[in-house]
């Protein structure tokens, strides 16, 4: 950064070191991760039976055919694996146990560290959870070819960052509250519901969809999944794919600024500025 970098070029950059350390750390839990190989197909089978049965009576539900509905559940589950995040929980744990100070005494910014922890963790999850589940979907006969591969990659990458920012921001609450499990779990649950992880958002009542449109959550699962399927619609609003991905990018910037603002207030509280 300031001329020092070239002299010390044999030192691996922090992000590489964090990714590799986290990857190794999580290797110990790969058998736990692998349980998804069992649970996700079962969960998907239940969904399959539900919608199979429902579509016996109607041909489309809220504009989705049976195939599209199943594709939605398949892709949203993959988005769920990709975006799964423990940054918030870990931050809260650090603050509540006081271990956060071991980061304060090191020359590194925690959000940077935490983000690459997620990267390391998800690289492992990719092999252990996602690849086998993708394999299951293919065996099941789901057509997994994305409609617009380029935009799909962009949209999934943005959602990866956004879900991290949401989780990390929620974790910041621990600067103010002693016990935060309840708040965290509430927000996590609402994030999951409102992001469309359990059910496509266009199935919710129309009035509710209008609210969902203006919340950041749809950009975590619903948007990337719809980009994958190739058409976007919510609350009667249809949009070309590039446009919704653009909105998604704006949302990341907003969320980042919100996070930095709350963070700076939290750090002030932690370091006791003005008290």
């Amino acid at each position: 950064m300031d001329g020092i970098v070239s002299r010390r070029s044999d030192t691996p950059p922090i992000f590489k070191a964090v990714i590799s350390a986290t990857y190794k750390e999580n290797l110990a839990y790969r058998s736990q991760m692998a349980i998804s190989i069992f649970t996700q197909p079962i969960y998907f089978l239940v969904q399959y039976f539900i919608w199979q049965s429902v579509f016996k009576i109607s041909d489309t539900v809220s504009g989705f055919t049976l195939d599209q509905m199943l594709l939605y559940f398949a892709i949203s589950s993959l988005s769920g694996f990709l975006n799964w995040d423990s940054a918030g929980t870990e931050l809260q744990d650090l603050i509540q146990t006081g271990k956060f100070i071991t980061f304060q005494i090191r020359p590194v910014s925690h959000i940077y560290y935490s983000f690459f922890q997620k990267v390391g963790n998800r690289i492992l999850a990719f092999w252990v959870e996602m690849v086998p589940v993708i394999f299951f979907y293919i065996l099941f006969g789901i057509d997994l070819i994305p409609a617009k591969p380029f935009w799909t990659v962009i949209s999934f990458s943005i959602s990866f960052v956004l879900s991290f920012l949401v989780s990390y921001t929620v974790g910041t609450i621990a600067f103010w509250l002693v016990k935060t499990d309840g708040v965290r779990r509430s927000i996590l649950l609402f994030t999951q519901i409102f992001s469309g992880l359990f059910l496509p958002l266009n199935l919710f009542p129309k009035g509710f969809q209008k609210i969902l449109f203006y919340l950041p959550f749809q950009f975590i699962t619903y948007v990337p999944t719809r980009v994958y399927i190739g058409s976007y619609e919510l609350a009667g609003i249809t949009m070309p794919i590039p446009q919704i991905v653009f909105l998604q990018a704006i949302m990341v910037v907003i969320m980042f600024l919100v996070n930095r603002f709350i963070w700076s207030m939290g750090i002030k509280r932690f370091t006791g500025v003005g008290s």
Binding site: V54, F55, K56, S58, S62, I193, F198, L199, L203, P205
Partner: peptide, 17 residues
């Protein structure tokens, strides 16, 4: 969660036979 999905299915004019 489960009941909500049920309601939404029926709200969309679909049902379990």
């Amino acid at each position: 969660g489960g009941p909500v999905i049920t309601l939404i299915i029926y709200n969309n004019g679909a049902s379990f036979p």
